[in-house]
Computed example of a mutant assay.
Amino acid sequence: MEPKLFGQYLREARNKKKLTLEKVAKSANLSKGYLSNIENGNRGIPSPDLLNKLSKPLGVSYSDLMLKAGYYDESMYKFTKDFEMYENEMETPLMQVLSLFIGGAGYINPEIRDELFLVLEDSMIGPDFARFNKEFRQYLINKQEAPDSISTDYEEDLYEEFDSLYNAKNLLIQFKDYVNESTKEQLLTVLTELAEKNNLGTRMNSAFLELTTLLSEPSITYNQKTLSQLDRQRILDMLELLFPNH
Score class of each variant (00 low, 15 high):
residue 116 L to T: 03
residue 116 L to G: 05
residue 116 L to I: 07
residue 116 L to A: 05
residue 117 F to L: 06
residue 117 F to M: 06
residue 117 F to T: 04
residue 118 L to W: 01
residue 118 L to D: 10
residue 119 V to F: 09
residue 119 V to C: 14
residue 120 L to H: 11
residue 120 L to R: 07
residue 121 E to K: 15
residue 121 E to T: 09
residue 122 D to T: 14
residue 123 S to T: 08
residue 123 S to H: 10
residue 123 S to E: 07
residue 123 S to F: 10
residue 124 M to Q: 05
residue 125 I to M: 04
residue 125 I to F: 04
residue 125 I to Y: 06
residue 125 I to W: 03
residue 126 G to M: 01
residue 126 G to T: 04
residue 127 P to D: 06
residue 128 D to F: 00
residue 129 F to H: 03
residue 129 F to A: 03
residue 129 F to G: 02
residue 130 A to W: 01
residue 130 A to M: 06
residue 131 R to P: 04
residue 131 R to F: 12
residue 131 R to T: 13
residue 131 R to Y: 12
residue 132 F to Y: 11
residue 132 F to M: 08
residue 133 N to V: 03
residue 133 N to H: 03
residue 133 N to G: 05
residue 133 N to Q: 02
residue 134 K to P: 00
residue 134 K to E: 14
residue 134 K to V: 11
residue 135 E to G: 00
residue 135 E to T: 03
residue 135 E to N: 03
residue 135 E to R: 02
residue 136 F to R: 00
residue 136 F to D: 01
residue 137 R to A: 14
residue 139 Y to K: 08
residue 140 L to V: 09
residue 140 L to S: 10
residue 140 L to W: 01
residue 140 L to N: 10
residue 140 L to D: 09
residue 141 I to N: 10
residue 141 I to Y: 10
residue 141 I to R: 08
residue 142 N to L: 14
residue 142 N to Q: 14
residue 142 N to A: 12
residue 142 N to C: 06
residue 144 Q to C: 07
residue 144 Q to S: 15
residue 144 Q to I: 12
residue 145 E to V: 13
residue 145 E to S: 15
residue 146 A to Y: 09
residue 146 A to R: 12
residue 146 A to L: 02
residue 146 A to F: 08
residue 146 A to W: 01
residue 148 D to R: 13
residue 148 D to I: 02
residue 148 D to T: 12
residue 148 D to N: 13
residue 148 D to K: 13
residue 149 S to V: 06
residue 149 S to T: 14
residue 149 S to G: 08
residue 149 S to R: 09
residue 149 S to C: 05
residue 150 I to D: 04
residue 150 I to H: 01
residue 150 I to K: 01
residue 150 I to Q: 00
residue 150 I to P: 11
residue 151 S to P: 15
residue 151 S to G: 10
residue 151 S to Q: 10
residue 151 S to H: 06
residue 152 T to E: 14
residue 153 D to R: 14
residue 153 D to Q: 14
residue 153 D to H: 08
residue 153 D to W: 04
residue 153 D to L: 10
residue 154 Y to E: 13
residue 154 Y to D: 15
residue 154 Y to W: 10
residue 155 E to D: 13
residue 155 E to F: 04
residue 155 E to V: 04
residue 156 E to D: 15
residue 156 E to C: 08
residue 156 E to K: 15
residue 156 E to M: 13
residue 157 D to W: 00
residue 157 D to C: 01
residue 157 D to P: 00
residue 157 D to A: 09
residue 157 D to Q: 09
residue 158 L to E: 07
residue 158 L to T: 04
residue 158 L to H: 05
residue 158 L to G: 06
residue 159 Y to T: 06
residue 159 Y to P: 00
residue 160 E to G: 00
residue 160 E to F: 00
residue 160 E to I: 00
residue 160 E to L: 01
residue 160 E to T: 06
residue 161 E to S: 12
residue 161 E to I: 11
residue 161 E to Q: 15
residue 162 F to H: 12
residue 162 F to Y: 15
residue 162 F to N: 11
residue 163 D to E: 11
residue 163 D to Y: 07
residue 163 D to C: 07
residue 163 D to G: 07
